[in-house]
Simulated scan of single mutants.
Amino acid sequence: MRMLISILAGSLFGTGLLISGMTDTTKVLGWLDVFGNWDPTLAFVMGGAIIPMLFAWRLTTNRQPLTGGHFPPKSTPEMNRRLILGSTLFGMGWGLAGLCPGPALASLSYGGIGGVIFLIAMIAGMVAAPSVGAQLDRSANPA
């Protein structure tokens, strides 16, 4: 059941990205070009995701998933060096490539070698992130 729900959710997500044009790097870069030829369509895609999620969080309060287990608790927002550095690096990569992880995976089937290189670089960053974060923590709190 869990696998079926995951496949359905992933397919829905990928199809939405494809239909909305968010797998097109020029569309994403147009969103980031605030002082040039700005393309606001990504705001509609974000709204299309955020609004239903707002209701989903409300509906899942004190409930269990169909597949068992529990829903993760809401995270507590914490501004720290890791968040600032991580979001800055993510934004730089997003701006340079015109892709973030979801659309990058969705575009693998037609993105050619550039999509594969992006995926490899993204996985390398994910592997390196815990040690970089630990180093940031040690430098922020010297013993």
Score class of each variant (00 low, 15 high):
residue 54 L to Y: 12
residue 32 L to G: 10
residue 101 P to H: 12
residue 92 M to A: 13
residue 25 T to S: 10
residue 95 G to E: 02
residue 36 G to P: 08
residue 81 R to A: 15
residue 35 F to E: 11
residue 120 I to L: 14
residue 8 L to N: 00
residue 9 A to F: 15
residue 53 M to H: 10
residue 142 P to G: 01
residue 126 M to A: 12
residue 81 R to I: 14
residue 134 A to W: 11
residue 106 A to N: 09
residue 124 A to E: 05
residue 112 G to W: 11
residue 96 L to D: 00
residue 29 L to G: 03
residue 85 L to E: 01
residue 23 T to I: 13
residue 40 P to F: 03
residue 135 Q to W: 13
residue 28 V to K: 00
residue 68 G to H: 08
residue 137 D to A: 09
residue 92 M to H: 04
residue 113 I to K: 14
residue 72 P to F: 04
residue 95 G to A: 13
residue 57 W to L: 15
residue 85 L to K: 07
residue 39 D to W: 05
residue 45 V to N: 02
residue 136 L to G: 04
residue 86 G to V: 10
residue 69 G to L: 07
residue 40 P to A: 01
residue 69 G to F: 04
residue 136 L to S: 02
residue 133 G to L: 03
residue 41 T to D: 03
residue 89 L to H: 01
residue 10 G to H: 13
residue 109 S to A: 09
residue 51 I to Y: 07
residue 12 L to V: 14
residue 52 P to D: 04
residue 138 R to F: 08
residue 137 D to G: 04
residue 128 A to F: 13
residue 46 M to W: 12
residue 38 W to M: 09
residue 4 L to Q: 07
residue 122 M to A: 02
residue 104 A to H: 02
residue 136 L to Y: 05
residue 132 V to N: 07
residue 97 A to C: 08
residue 44 F to K: 00
residue 44 F to A: 13
residue 46 M to E: 01
residue 125 G to R: 09
residue 117 I to N: 10
residue 78 E to D: 11
residue 90 F to G: 05
residue 103 P to T: 07
residue 98 G to S: 07
residue 22 M to T: 12
residue 5 I to Q: 06
residue 52 P to M: 02
residue 71 F to T: 04
residue 35 F to M: 03
residue 75 S to Q: 14
